[in-house]
Amino acid sequence: MFTQRFLKDKRGVNLAPSERAALENAISDVRQVPARTILLRAGQPVNASTLLVEGIMSRYIDDRNGLRQLVAVHVPGDFVDLHAFPLKVLEHDVATMTASTVAIIPHAALEDVLSEFPAMNRKLWFATLIDAAIHRAWLFRMGRLDAVGKVAHFLCETNARMVSAGLSDGRRFALDLTQADLAEICGLTTVHINRVLRQLRDEGLCVFRASVVELLDPERLSRRGQFDDGYLYNERAASAVSML
């Protein structure tokens, strides 16, 4: 099942088995997409929604010199462009960061699902509201936190999102990103990221090595990054999962 991680373990929303099955049946195509591939470009018409099944994807905006600013990172279980369902166009590009698997749901098929299951309207809305909450946290991270705080916040958030998707045990998760990717996400240079990661390791907070993130002390890392997972509406806090 490709939709199993969508809105999984979210507080206040639950997909009924019949709704999830309808969403699954609405998938027209499942694609393997290589890393660093642009899926959607800003300004182009969008007539299908893309569900990330495996991998990591990003949304970004290019400046006039072609240098990109990442504005979102997506993990498995996320629709990467659900806002384009009503908007029909994106104001940013969407690309894979790692090799990814995506499920394509044509907007017409999604309309049919919503006609048959009207309660799904609110649930898709819920998903885009969580997206918006993550954007607000992104702004806070970039605007208010120092270099160590930015990285700590991002790793705590990603851990919490991976917990929700069933891809982290609360302390350890696979993250096939490079230090350059982390640098781009946090608006730092690779030199700076390298030092921040060393600092996090030396302080016994977190280790990022060989595409695996290990939170050595999740509580202190959260405090360092001023991270509170309330905005993710996870059923269970990552810290609670890690103690199971």
Binding site: L145, D146, K150, G187, L188, V191, H192
Partner: peptide, 19 residues
């Protein structure tokens, strides 16, 4: 300001992070 790998990193004040 600190030196790192042949570059200068400026940390702070207030979230400034420049190489």
């Amino acid at each position: 300001a600190t030196a790192e790998q042949g570059f200068v990193i400026l940390d702070g004040p207030d979230g400034v992070a420049v190489t």
